[in-house]
Design a protein around this nucleic acid. Structure first.
Lengths: 112, 112
DNA sequence: ATCCATGCGCAACCATCGGTTGCGTACTGC
DNA sequence: GCAGTACGCAACCGATGGTTGCGCATGGAT
């Protein structure tokens, strides 16, 4: 049950700042470049660029509200991203376990 | 049960090429810059640089074997990385579920 | 013992990316 | 109508992922 890994989606989520932005947006429901930058160690412009990236891969979407651009997490897309994280994790996990099993089998066969 | 997220470890795993390298190393047990580059769309030198990065965060380690440098995955460290993926995924998942629950509650209270 | 091939590292170079500062512009509220 | 604020655009900078080109050392065939 391997989800096809979308490199764009993954690398959007790969950046620590963008990850924190998603955290903040999830925690507060919505936010603007300005409100997010107040809670992050980077400038509004940097946040704004990240929002463009997140928007491009569909992880957030913007709604114009007067002079503000209010951003919100796209839950379905974030769920997809989470699925991919889980999938890669599970794949590696399975391989690690298989390696361990083989190693133990070899060990057993040698000590007998 | 939140694992402290190590940005270095995460971003090491964030690069798609490095992820594929880890896949290959896991599948074949070990490999060199040359053997890996043959199975990837990048040059040996690019692979070599990635191996340095992976080595720096402890995800692989090298063993000199004649004129070869044979690399291997550090299973414990990869397990740590997997745990972090799972952790972030779980956090987002929980938040998404909470949002959904609240949304449903609001919907219910309005339609009554 | 030699010579060729191979596996690697180093250096220069380039585009992209994450970040900054500076500036112009447009909406809001008094 | 004017001050303040939220934004976008552009220039710039360092780090990173990628390339090519080179030199060096080791291993195997003659």
């Amino acid at each position: 049950m391997s989800v096809a890994v979308d490199d764009d989606l993954w690398s959007a989520v790969g950046d620590p700042t963008r990850r924190r932005m998603l955290d903040l947006l999830l925690a507060e429901g919505a936010g603007t470049a300005t409100t997010l930058s107040e809670q992050l160690p980077v400038t509004r412009q940097a946040v704004s660029k990240h929002l463009v990236v997140l928007d491009r891969v569909g992880l957030v979407h913007a709604a114009a509200a007067g002079r503000e651009r209010r951003y919100q997490v796209d839950e379905a897309q974030l769920a997809r991203a989470v699925a991919q994280l889980a999938d890669v994790g599970a794949t590696w996990d399975a391989r690690l376990r298989r390696i361990k099993r083989i190693a133990e089998a070899i060990e057993r066969s040698q000590e007998k």
